[in-house]
Amino acid sequence: MYIAVASGKGGTGKTLVSTSLALCAGECAYVDLDVEEPNGYIFLKPVIEKEIRCELPVPQIDEQVCTFCGECAKACAYNALMVMKQLKKTLFFADLCHSCGACAYVCPVKNALKEVKRTIGKISTGKTGTVKFIEGRLDVGRPSGVPLIACIINDFLDINDLLIVDASPGTSCPVVESLKKSDYVILVTEPTPFGLHDLELTIEIVKELGKEAGIIINKDNGRSALIEDFAARAGIPVLLKIPYSMDIQRAYSEGIPLIEAQPGIKEKFKEILKKLTAGIGQ
């Protein structure tokens, strides 16, 4: 089962919730797909067993062989290639390349354009107790984490595991990639106008993808009616409210998992997991 934890707005507590779920699950895999800023390791303190570089194919042009016909640049939808016939030069802008392979497919000259590997990030796997740990980490300066996320989902996950997936903030392509294969989405929000606004946007994606979802309200400060009223109208259950508390914030700041800072909350997370896994089995 694949449970994705997402939020829209950043800093609402995705990592707080997903690491707690993982630690309550007994056996499961925690998957950090917030590849731009992965922080789950801070709370789970895993022993890393393997590190694999994530590489993508990008074109490399041999200017001795290239006839500068311009077909590759014409085929590239991302303007990553520029051919200057007169100067006998082909420029490649690696950060614009999406590794689709169109340039290599259309090149009419043998050995003029070959695809070589370019590293975009790192995938780490390891363990913390009975929890498997898988993390994607985008190299600084690389524009898109989507291929790294896709690589983890396609090659590193065992669908027989209970997967707890920490998604990135926002509402664009990396989030969609993280939610596509999910069986259930937990949306973490906070009771502020910002939290509500971004929750509404994220629910649009969840609905578009046809996923079932539930809400966890973090930093509940007595204003949670703002979110609860919306949830009732949208027909999405509120699974849990985590109180606004300085103790929780201090523990968080030191990398102490929520279930250690607030032992009472462990049972509530276990209950959520039980409900979700039972619901899917039916």
Partner: peptide
Amino acid sequence: PGIGCPVISAVSGADFALIVTEPTYSGISD
């Protein structure tokens, strides 16, 4: 938030970047 393409577009050509952080391990890591 983050460090990906929208952030790169936002900072490119900027004269000054104000980085807002918080004293948490996650904040420091990011």
